[in-house]
């Protein structure tokens, strides 16, 4: 019944044109800047082609930032999925419908907070002397000091815990909703076969949800790239360079320490290439 109409053209073309311009101009310009030697302090520049990239691979702090970023990505994605599936299954098993609704509301709250707010909330909580999260430790040990944000071995995990607090709880709600959409017959069949509760989930429900769970993980991998706000507020990349991820290092090279905009841009370009290639490949696999 649908006649030929001008609607798809008038609705799509302007929007796509604007999106293309808004995304391609900065992307291409980032590459241009990366091939020059611009600095914030002066307006002169010349073309230096690939020398920024060569410098990067000789820069140990850059290699450290790559490693920290990879660690951050793995820790937050894995922990988020574990918390989400664990709490989601628990809600499905032991909570009444009314309790489920209450938990769902509570679990969405952290993810709605601005990352800056979440970071501050936990920065206060992790304060060694007056923090509410370190209070139990002080209480048990009789006043010993535990400062998770200023120890190189724990700082990354302390910041990651805030990310998992936001996303893990939120994804638990989604896992619960996914479990609720499953048809009840296979679960009942497994129950008749005397399967334990955890066996039902490990062998029946979670495999049935494989596709949406992988999509969720994919979303989390993308969102984990946005670690900057948390790290900027909580540790500024410190102690030392223990929590300095790529975007934090790019920011401090470009704006705080030396104003080397081109150097920072070269880093951003490498990040962009890595993420676009990885996620495009992952996406094609998820879709297939």
């Amino acid at each position: 019944m649908r006649r030929r109409s001008s609607l798809p053209v008038t609705f799509l073309v302007p929007t796509l044109a604007i999106l293309l311009v808004l995304s391609m101009v900065p992307t291409l310009y980032a590459i241009v800047i990366a091939l020059q030697n611009r600095e914030l302090s002066s307006s002169d520049y010349s073309w230096v082609w690939l020398s920024n990239f060569i410098d990067l691979f000789l820069d140990r702090r850059f290699l450290n930032a790559v490693w920290v970023s990879v660690k951050w990505e793995i820790v937050t994605v894995v922990a988020t999925m574990v918390v989400a599936i664990g709490l989601g299954v628990l809600m499905f098993e032991v909570a009444s419908p009314r309790l489920r609704n209450i938990y769902c509301l509570l679990f969405i709250i952290p993810v709605l907070l601005p990352r800056v707010s979440a970071a501050f909330v936990w920065k206060f909580a992790y304060h060694p002397l007056y923090g509410i999260a370190t209070y139990p430790y002080r209480l048990i040990t009789g006043g010993l000091i535990f400062d998770p944000l200023s120890k190189p071995s724990t700082a990354l995990f302390a910041v990651a815990s805030v990310d998992v607090w936001q996303w893990g709880l939120f994804f638990a709600v989604i896992v619960l909703k996914l479990l609720e959409t499953l048809p009840p017959q296979p679960i009942e069949a497994a129950r008749l076969d005397h399967a334990r509760r955890w066996q039902i989930h490990a062998y029946v429900t979670l495999p049935m949800l494989k596709a949406p769970l992988i999509s969720l993980m994919f979303v989390k991998m993308i969102e984990s790239l946005r670690s900057f706000d948390l790290i900027y507020v909580m540790t500024r990349g410190g102690p030392g360079v223990a929590t300095e991820t790529l975007d934090m290092y790019a920011f401090s090279q470009g704006f705080i320490e030396s104003g080397k905009v081109s150097y920072a841009s070269a880093m951003a370009v490498l990040m962009m290439i890595a993420t676009v290639i990885t996620f495009t490949m992952l996406w094609k696999r998820v879709q297939a």
Binding site: A30, I33, S265, M267, T275, V276, T280
Partner: peptide
Amino acid sequence: LSLRFLPPVAVAIPLMVI
């Protein structure tokens, strides 16, 4: 969707210069 892959730094640095 791929617009979401772009690292914010990679968008912000060139835009700042522009």
